[in-house]
Design a protein around this nucleic acid. Structure first.
Length: 121
DNA sequence: ATGATCGTACTGC
DNA sequence: GCAGTACGATCAT
């Protein structure tokens, strides 16, 4: 699905809180082949709590159209996916990112830290 | 260098 | 309100 379509859907769907919309929109600004962190994402949308960002992504209304797999932790650990911190979901997350050129080591840590997208404030 | 704890903002109940 | 969370930073071992 195209980015524009998702943005439209987000605007139309009033069941989504403004905060969550901000999170999803910001996430859509991250191009394939890059990732961002919960904290940085939160900063951009004016929130100091990465947990809140995680919550928003967990309730991702348009998964997998919204690429929640491009969000990792500040310590470059892979974080979670679909409510799981480990297991096959995480494996899938790694595979998805690997396809986009973002690789993680055995410990689930991002290998190339240059792949962290620098969001503008 | 790990593990526990508190602080944080938001969601669900 | 209250409690839980896909986190982060700090304090205590």
């Amino acid at each position: 699905m195209k980015k524009q379509e998702i943005q439209k859907l987000l605007q139309k769907n009033s069941r989504i809180s403004s905060f969550r919309r901000k999170v999803y929109l910001a996430l859509l600004h991250v191009p394939a082949g890059y990732v961002t962190t919960y904290a940085e994402l939160g900063k951009v949308i004016g929130c100091s709590s990465a947990q809140a960002v995680g919550q928003a992504l967990k309730h991702n209304p348009y998964a997998p159209d919204i690429p929640c797999h491009r969000v990792i932790k500040s310590n470059l650990s892979i974080g979670g996916f679909h409510g799981a911190k480990a297991g096959m979901y995480i494996k899938q997350k790694k595979e998805l990112l690997a396809k986009e050129g973002v690789f993680f080591n055995e410990d689930g840590i991002l290998i190339d830290s240059e792949r962290v997208f620098k969001l503008k404030l």
